[in-house]
Structure formats: C-alpha cells, structure tokens
Simulated assay, not measured.
Amino acid sequence: MKSDVAFHLICGSTGAGKSTFAQALAHDLRGLHFAIDRWMVTLFWQDSPQPIEFDWTMTRIERCEAMIFETAKQAVWIGVPAILDLGFTKAAHRQKFAKLAVDAQIPVVLHVLDVPVEERWTRVEARNASKGETYAMEVDRAMFDFVETMWELPDPAEMAALNGRLVVP
C-alpha cells in the first residue's frame, strides 16, 4: 500500500481551514474528501428542529460517520486515500477513528491546523458572508464559541502515535 493511502484525519477548531486544506490534500493525493458538514446539511438539515438540538444533531453525526467510515475503508482498500474532514476537535474522537483504522489495518495520518481564535472567527465571518466553496451552513458566534469549548489540541504523544503533521496555513 502506498504511504499516502491512509485515513488522513483533518483536525482543527472552527475556521482553522480544515475544509480548504482537506480539499487541496484530496486533490494532491487523488483521494476522496469526506466532509461531515456536507453530509449533515444534505441528509438532515432541512429536517432539523429549530433551534438545533445537540442530541438530535449528535445522533445524526454518528450515523454519517458510520457510513463515512465504511465508504472510506473501501476507498483505502482499493488504493484511494481517504481525507476525513470530520472536525476531530476532541482527542477521544480522533482516537475512535484511529482505532477503527488500526482494526481495519489502515494507516493513519493526523493533520493539525492550529490557528489563533480571532483569526479563525474573522475567517468564519468572511465565509458566512461569501458563502463560497467551503460554506456548508451559517456559523454564528454562539456556535463558534460552543465548539471552542470542545477544542483539544493534540499533545506530542498523540502527534507521535497518529503520525501527526502540523499544518502551517
């Protein structure tokens, strides 16, 4: 298996540039880009309760991730890198996918985008306004701040265990 044929976990908080980086990486590696935001918006957002309910959302994210994992696994088995743009804000989430990959005998590469909070918020505001290529849904300051409370930067041990690479935008 070529060294790039792996699960590429794209990690960072809101506005770090994960989707932009994931799209470029998928292009460079001739891989498949799996973006959780697009899956959620396409499959569930039109049916979502208003205001959004955390438990409702998390149940559907878990369903999407299960299908993404199965499809990504098939891609890697036929020699196509899988670029997993699932947020991976928490260490436990990264470890879950790393374990799934190891159990399926698939290499893992963690790509970490660490960008200062105010720069990320500025990017989110610009994305909300432009509704460009990486726009999936409106992210308001409350949602941004909520995700910020969950962000866990990988430590050196996690970086080593998951073949971590720091991405400098």
Rank of each mutant, 00 (worst) to 15 (best):
E70Q: 14
I78G: 01
S48C: 12
E65F: 00
A35F: 04
G164T: 02
L25V: 11
R123N: 15
K96L: 14
A136S: 15
K99P: 00
I36Q: 12
D114Y: 10
A35W: 02
Q74C: 10
R141M: 02
G79Q: 07
S13K: 10
G164K: 01
D145E: 14
V80F: 11
L86C: 14
A22T: 02
P81W: 08
V80Y: 12
I36R: 05
F146I: 12
E125Q: 15
V76P: 01
L86E: 02
Q46M: 10
E65T: 00
T59K: 13
S19G: 13
H27Y: 01
K2D: 15
E148Y: 01
E119Y: 04
R30M: 12
L162Y: 05
F97T: 01
W77N: 08
C64R: 00
S19Y: 09
K131R: 13
E133M: 09
L29C: 10
E119P: 05
E158G: 03
F144L: 09
P116Q: 05
E158T: 05
A92V: 07
A22H: 00
S13V: 04
A6P: 01
S19H: 06
R94P: 05
F144C: 08
E70L: 14
E53G: 11
E148I: 00
A92P: 03
D155G: 14
M137P: 08
Q46Y: 10
C11Q: 12
E152F: 08
R94F: 10
D28V: 04
M150Y: 12
P156Q: 05
R60Y: 09
F97P: 00
L84P: 05
M67A: 11
P51M: 06
G31H: 06
V124F: 03
P107I: 09
A16H: 10
A22C: 06
K2R: 15
N163F: 06
M67T: 06
